[in-house]
């Protein structure tokens, strides 16, 4: 087996964060390839060649008919077998922003409640228009559930990074749906008030705009499936790979280490793959 951790970064059809997503995996020791969705659909390549799958942000198909929906359909109908095999093989998947929307609409997130089940590709949640009705680019503060099974977020408590979306409000039909995910610690990452103590920021009650930029139920920013391998979030950790991308870096004394807080998420996945060998 090759020692390389191979990362498939999807692109095409309006995905537009593929370059930086590929770059951050390289920064943490992965070997990224930007791969057009159709190279998989047409059978020229296969997901089984890769160890990690990343579905980056963007405006796939212009987000018409709902964000991520048409890309989700391509994955659900044209790549169904490859995708199910990838998950069954226990390989990590991340969806960021539009990629998260696509994974939710594909049904990979949150997925069936028991970790042992094969993905059934049934949609159980959705991401809908921000309460403001506006697309916005702004930095938010995120806090992570330390007990989450998510392999992507180990040892990360709180980070800042930007959101850039018009449809980031996470919703599910009932409170029970949320309670179940919360009990499984699948509500991996939430928007929190930056003035709160680290580790104590997470709350269920709706936070005001702009602390919660979209009005997500229970302030959810991202979730994982029951296995903890599939992870999706609206904010963009890849957009905070270096401190020079932080909005206030000119007020900080940074010294020599300019690594941004977002990079650890990607490093976790690469290290997880290595640890499984």
């Amino acid at each position: 087996m090759s020692l390389e951790v191979k990362v498939c970064v999807l692109f095409g059809f309006g995905i537009n964060c593929d370059r930086e997503t590929a770059a951050v995996f390289e920064m943490v020791g992965g070997v990224s390839e930007r791969l057009h969705v159709n190279r998989l659909v047409q059978g020229e390549r296969n997901l089984s060649e890769f160890d990690i799958l990343a579905v980056p942000g963007g405006f796939s198909f212009g987000d018409h008919l709902g964000s991520g929906r048409l890309l989700g359909n391509r994955l659900r109908f044209a790549l169904r077998d490859q995708l199910q095999q990838f998950v069954t093989d226990g390989k990590p998947i991340i969806g960021i922003c539009n990629g998260f929307q696509a994974l939710v609409k594909t049904g990979l997130l949150p997925g069936p409640s028991e970790a042992s089940l094969e993905p059934d590709l049934i949609q159980r949640a959705s991401l809908t228009l921000n309460n403001t009705g506006r697309y916005e680019d702004r930095w938010v503060t995120l806090e992570f559930d330390s007990q989450s099974p998510c392999i992507w977020t180990k040892n990360i408590q709180r980070i800042e990074c930007p959101v850039r979306h018009g449809e980031g409000r996470f919703v599910m039909p009932t409170a029970e749906d949320f309670n179940n995910l919360e009990a499984n610690h699948q509500l991996t990452v939430r928007y929190v008030d930056p003035v709160t103590t680290i580790g104590e920021g997470i709350q269920d009650e709706l936070l005001p705009f702009p602390i919660s930029p979209n009005g997500s139920m229970r302030n959810v920013a991202g979730i994982c499936d029951a296995t903890g391998l599939v992870f999706g979030l609206m904010p963009h950790p890849e957009a905070f790979y270096s401190m020079w991308l932080h909005p206030e870096h000119t007020s900080m004394d940074i010294g020599e280490d300019w690594e941004g807080e977002g990079l650890q998420i990607f490093r976790n996945a690469v290290e997880y793959v290595r640890s499984q060998r």
Binding site: C17, G57, R134, D137, R138, H236, L245, P247, T250
Partner: peptide, 20 residues
């Protein structure tokens, strides 16, 4: 201006809005 994505491609160092 916030409704424009000013950070896609992860390269924007001085953004349209700055400060605390």
């Amino acid at each position: 201006v916030r409704q424009y994505d000013h950070e896609v491609i992860a390269q924007t160092v001085v953004k349209p809005f700055v400060g605390v």
